[in-house]
Amino acid sequence: MRVQAKICGLTTFETLDTAVRHGASHVGFVFFPPSPRNLGFDQARALATRAPAHVQKIGVFVDPDDAMLDAALAAGLDAVQLHKVTPDRAAAIRRRVPVWVALAVKTAADLRAAAGFQAAADRILYDAKTPEGAALPGGMGLRFDWTLLQGHRPPLPWALSGGLDPDNVAEAIRVTGAPQVDVSSGVESAPGVKDVAKIAAFLQAVARC
């Protein structure tokens, strides 16, 4: 089965078009003001409208309130990716839209939290845990020990994130068996600035797996 790939934190038509052209299955739009990848709702709507129907549009949030969700969903999202959310809140949001839950991982013990979302989410995103007090919950180029996922039985469909780039994604897939990978800072030339050459290289590396 072909490994799927999500390019997250897109902000321009050029980078969106590059992701689509090189085979991204999903594209991510960030709705979190502290992030350098944050989008306004009108920007997100324009990007989502440009993306073809076969590419899933995922909105990325940090424990959003209902008003933010309402505005973002109107932009044409297919699913939402939630960071720092409880199972109860994820389940409530899932009644409106498919839900991915980002699980911050540093040790094997962190993986156990995935079980709590079995009835509350559609997909688990295993991401690297950021340092205590960090402004962002992800997109910082950090990775966790991929061997932690060896022998782990995910309770839901899942994806791997955290510190991936064109040079290491093939190894990450080999070590973890990930059916889907997610990249943001690993295809940037500066925080929030996607690099079309890196996007293409990343997706080409995934396609070869």
Rank of each mutant, 00 (worst) to 15 (best):
N168M: 04
V80F: 11
V183E: 01
L142P: 06
G162I: 03
R2I: 08
D78M: 08
L47W: 09
L136R: 01
P155E: 01
A24P: 12
G138L: 03
W146L: 10
G138E: 10
F32G: 09
A205F: 06
Q81K: 02
A24C: 11
Q180I: 00
E171H: 14
V55D: 04
E14V: 09
D78L: 06
M1I: 02
I93H: 05
I58H: 02
R143H: 12
P36W: 12
G162W: 06
V101D: 04
D88E: 15
A5S: 13
A197Y: 14
L39Q: 05
P36Q: 08
I199A: 11
V169K: 08
A134H: 14
K6T: 11
G177R: 04
H54E: 10
S184I: 08
F117W: 08
V20L: 09
A5T: 11
T86V: 02
D145F: 06
R123S: 00
I93Y: 08
F32I: 02
K57W: 03
R143P: 00
S35D: 04
K194Q: 07
T15P: 07
L125V: 14
T107W: 07
P33W: 09
W158G: 00
R95E: 15
Q204P: 00
A120K: 08
R123Y: 07
L111T: 01
L203E: 05
D195V: 13
A109W: 00
L69I: 04
R153V: 15
K129H: 04
K84P: 00
Q150I: 11
